[in-house]
Simulated scan of single mutants.
Amino acid sequence: MSIDRFETLRKFTAARIGLGRSGPGIATPDHLAFRAAHALARDAVHTELDLAALAASLSPLGLPVLRVESRAPDQQTYLTRPDFGRRLSDASVTALQAREQGEEIAVLVAGGLSAFATASHAANLLALLVPGFRQAGLTVGPICIAPRGRVALGDEVGALLGARLVLVLIGERPGLSSPDSLGAYITVAPRLGRTDADRNCISNIRPEGMVLAEAARRILWLTDQAMTRGISGVSLKDDSDRVLLAASAQGQLLTG
């Protein structure tokens, strides 16, 4: 009887390790599993976000939901012209300019490169975040949803809404084991011209990666620090784990 030396390791990773062989090629079940994963990744990139379903899932939050459009008129243009996905259409600029300003946090939910991720996780994550923002005394503006938006689109949205901080939830580029990974980006003082160095990112938000509760904890901590200190990106380190460990140690001392 042959012993599968990789069986134990496979319980701890989604990586394709120790694949079986059939002659010079991999075994049929492993080949078919790879083809299925590749198909899911392609579908994630090419599928457009269902805005009506997303708006319905966001309605329990009790916040206005606004549809905004980038300058990419369709998915094919969006994929081949990333710059179009970073700027709002003229009509969306006009619509946001007409809105009353004043909320401290602006939220943009975008399809990004995985509509699966956004549709699966964005509303559930916001259901944890919005009460946390309110508990911290922060006002949250309308939730803007964009079918073909890149991360930088949030800078223009936040600036037009006069927000102190913008939170972007967006579907991340899918991998062959993660077609539904959501990313969260936090930028203080949003405006055109901001770069990735100005943002904090929480990545791989999904049940098999960073679970929603943990992602919400980190986002709330980073948001509090960004609003308090007026910084984000490389100037703001995610020390939430250190704070959590220190609080846990202090609790053990008090109860020990």
Rank of each mutant, 00 (worst) to 15 (best):
residue 2 S to G: 01
residue 2 S to I: 12
residue 4 D to S: 05
residue 5 R to V: 11
residue 7 E to H: 10
residue 13 T to Y: 03
residue 22 S to D: 14
residue 33 A to N: 12
residue 37 A to V: 02
residue 43 D to M: 08
residue 46 H to M: 06
residue 52 A to R: 12
residue 55 A to P: 07
residue 55 A to T: 10
residue 56 A to F: 00
residue 57 S to I: 04
residue 59 S to W: 03
residue 67 R to T: 12
residue 75 Q to E: 00
residue 79 L to N: 02
residue 81 R to W: 02
residue 83 D to R: 01
residue 87 R to D: 14
residue 98 A to G: 15
residue 103 E to R: 14
residue 104 E to Q: 15
residue 105 I to P: 06
residue 107 V to G: 11
residue 108 L to K: 13
residue 110 A to P: 13
residue 110 A to K: 03
residue 111 G to K: 06
residue 112 G to I: 09
residue 117 A to K: 06
residue 122 A to K: 07
residue 128 L to N: 10
residue 132 G to P: 09
residue 134 R to A: 14
residue 138 L to D: 03
residue 139 T to C: 00
residue 142 P to M: 09
residue 144 C to S: 13
residue 144 C to D: 07
residue 149 G to L: 03
residue 174 P to Y: 09
residue 175 G to D: 11
residue 176 L to F: 14
residue 179 P to F: 10
residue 179 P to C: 07
residue 182 L to D: 04
residue 184 A to C: 14
residue 185 Y to I: 05
residue 188 V to L: 00
residue 194 R to T: 00
residue 196 D to T: 01
residue 196 D to E: 11
residue 200 N to R: 08
residue 200 N to V: 06
residue 215 A to R: 08
residue 217 R to N: 11
residue 217 R to S: 13
residue 226 A to W: 07
residue 226 A to F: 05
residue 228 T to W: 01
residue 250 Q to A: 15
residue 251 G to E: 13
residue 253 L to I: 05
